[in-house]
Amino acid sequence: MSRARIWQLIESGALDFSLSGITNPDRDKFAAFAWYFSNKYYLLVRKDAGIKQLADVARSERFQLGVIRGFRYSSNANRMVDQLTASNRVTLAGGLEPLYEALLQNRIQGMIMEPFDYPVVEEKRIRDATDIIGFEDPSVPHGLIMSRKALSPTELDKWRTLVNGMLADGTVLRIFRKYFNAELAAAMVEFQSKP
């Protein structure tokens, strides 16, 4: 299911949970969260796009940014997305796969990624063709998305407690270490969880 659809269903209550969501004032209205990791966002750009720093994006005439429909990121990243959307320089996608392809095909010149995606990005073909630029935002907590419509506050608390427990006893870290390098995994679970 596309991410956009997921948010729709969370809001309507048809979907109870999803994972790895970040919050913003709009989302907070219909979704509650249980944070279990945090990371920063990065801009993945083609080497030949001529982008050395974030400010270059606005100046560049033909820079097309690839973004997953329904995704929101950290504030600087959001600002860039909104600015580029206004000038028709954003291409939406239903998932990351096509974005990588499009990036390699030079259909888009950049896309936003998280450390989650490193394993894919580390694939030689992508890594060779791209640079990574940080968004200079603090890392954003990600967590279990819980539909307020579908779950009562007590249940929300219950799940939050469960997730916090998993964080506390290192379960989350263990899981992450299966898929990411130790350093990244540790960084991901190292965050100040918001209430």
Partner: peptide
């Protein structure tokens, strides 16, 4: 007047 592309992910496959 206006034109846009979007990448669709349908059943594990990419469309434009």
């Amino acid at each position: 007047r206006l034109q846009a592309d979007e990448y669709l992910v349908v059943a594990n496959h990419n469309w434009t």
